[in-house]
Design a protein around this nucleic acid. Sequence first.
DNA 1: ATAATAATTAGGTATCTATCTAATTATACA
DNA 2: TGTATAATTAGATAGATACCTAATTATTAT
Lengths: 106, 106
Amino acid sequence: MSSNKAFKALADPTRREILGLLRKGEMTAGDLAERFAMTKPSMSHHFAVLKDADLVTSRRDGQQIWYGLNTTVVQDLMAWAMDLIGDNGLGAAKKRGGKERGGKEQ
Amino acid sequence: MSSNKAFKALADPTRREILGLLRKGEMTAGDLAERFAMTKPSMSHHFAVLKDADLVTSRRDGQQIWYGLNTTVVQDLMAWAMDLIGDNGLGAAKKRGGKERGGKEQ
DNA sequence: ATAATAATTAGGTATCTATCTAATTATACA
DNA sequence: TGTATAATTAGATAGATACCTAATTATTAT
């Protein structure tokens, strides 16, 4: 439910970048780590924070650990932001003229 | 554009609550402050962080300073979250209870 | 069992942050 | 001009955070 942990986890740019890399699918800790100019233990710390906030999933496969994006928490954050804005507020649409494709407005 | 400052500002629960109070319209620093169990200088600090992140507007009217929600930055955050998810997973976040359209078979 | 590889945990430190009290600035008004 | 009110700025501090190196755990292979 839009936890404080999730917001705190997102406050760090490295962690947001990690999430961005996971957008396309799972990656191992090592593959993720080597994309940053930071030691592996530091990266491991970031993984732990993301996991504690439930923003990522993880599973071991042999020697490797695969991390993946947990979209449900991100959706909760979006719901929070939407509630703040009031209505659809997404993009330029701004209600006006009505019915901008996409359907499914609750 | 989804600045680091905005994410850091949102990492604090007091500041998120302030934004929630501003959802309905502008409020003065004093009126906002008295809703929290915290000194006015501490609240002033939070206002400054929100303002620096462009999450709120402010204007002086006599002795008072009115703060208001700046929805455009919140919209940027929503766009960032949506990009992370890929599809426009809005419905799922809102309906809370449904399992429709989850995708992500894993 | 030993060695090699992948990843985390432990311990330390510099910096950042949220809070407080005290002092200051800005405005209004008698 | 004073004095009261609204709010911020200044300065201090406890706790959190993001790094690092060194040590440890888990797994695979020889």
